[in-house]
């Protein structure tokens, strides 16, 4: 008994990608295994750790809790899509580097997605806003401190304040 394959077309980081997937293929597995976009990581596959966070139609969601087939016709942004097309780091990515907002790097893509969504919605977040926005993303290296600093720094830079 072979599984039914479903044809999907998804705009991933601005480019339409098509594929054939089984219904049970999670979005994160499709991104990683089929599109080789391995920047999005798997941590728990039950929606707690946030490592697999991506943006779906601009909103951060867990890609382990969405089947790829559900995203047919939608827009997905992964960490690879945060970098400028010419390869330059975004202000947020650069701020993470500046404050040492990462160590092993494993939770980082999900953190960046959550933080970018925050800054898109709220360019001047308080520390509480920042902690709330990343509270669905677990990190075991940093104790979150330098991540919070990175996001605050990025907010300052985006709004043109002296960092």
């Amino acid at each position: 008994m072979s599984e039914t394959l479903y044809r999907i077309a998804v705009t991933v980081n601005g480019v339409e990608r098509t594929g054939q997937v089984t219904a049970r293929t999670s979005l994160v597995d499709w991104l990683r295994e089929h599109l080789h976009l391995t920047g999005t990581h798997i941590g728990c596959e039950h929606g707690i750790c946030g490592a697999c966070s991506i943006m779906l139609d601009g909103a951060p969601v867990r890609s382990c809790l969405i089947y790829a087939v559900q995203t047919d016709g939608h827009r997905v942004t992964t960490v690879e899509g945060l970098t400028h097309p010419d390869g330059r780091l975004s202000i947020l990515q650069d701020s993470f580097c500046e404050t040492h907002g990462l160590q092993c790097g494993y939770c980082t893509p999900g953190m960046l997605i959550a933080a970018q969504a925050l800054l898109d919605a709220n360019p001047r977040p308080s520390e509480d806003d920042i902690r709330e926005a990343i509270s669905g993303n677990l990190c075991r290296c940093t104790g979150y401190q330098q991540i919070v600093e990175a996001i605050a720094l990025a907010a300052k830079r985006i709004s043109g304040e002296p960092a």
């Binding site: 976009l37 391995t38 920047g39 999005t40 992964t78 960490v79 690879e80 945060l82 970098t83 780091l89 990515q93 650069d94 993470f96 580097c97 040492h100 990462l102 092993c104 790097g105 980082t108 893509p109 960046l112």
Partner: peptide
């Protein structure tokens, strides 16, 4: 190490 990690 950071540049490769923040870009995925």
């Amino acid at each position: 190490e950071h540049a490769r990690f923040v870009t995925g």
